[in-house]
Amino acid sequence: MPEGPVHVIRPAKTIAERLGARKGESHGLDPALLARMEAALGAHVAQNAHLIPAELTRLRSRFAGARADGDFRPVFAASHDIKGLAGTFGYPAVTRFADSLCTYLLSLPDMSAASPLVVATHLDAMTAALESSEDGALVEELAQGLAALVAHAG
């Protein structure tokens, strides 16, 4: 229980009022606006089809650096970026494998103890998912293989 008084402070003016809403009025999601947003997102994804392959290349480069100097934190950062982006760009399996790699690296007491085999296999799985246009059967096979590999490495 907090010590002392608890003050509840209500903002004097709400954002809704600034946006033209009357007090207590709510509009929820406007389907037409949502459609415009989805169209804009679709166009952005189409214009940037190179992005996820380029991010995978960056991840491979970071991995090469980690193999040389033992610092896997840049690998984690690049994988974390891919995890956040790939799903939006149409590659949910790449996001899934990047998430698996991030989880593996975070599970280590020290990232410098990362197994190069586990990292390399995750990279190969992401590349295979990308190149196969996320073929469902292949993705499941890869996911099972990665889970077994991580369990064995742990």
């Binding site: 010590e3 002392g4 003050h7 402070i9 209500r10 903002p11």
Partner: peptide
């Protein structure tokens, strides 16, 4: 926008 939370100030 529609469900602004009140703010809490405690110790």
């Amino acid at each position: 926008v529609e469900r602004p939370r009140p703010f809490i100030q405690s110790a």
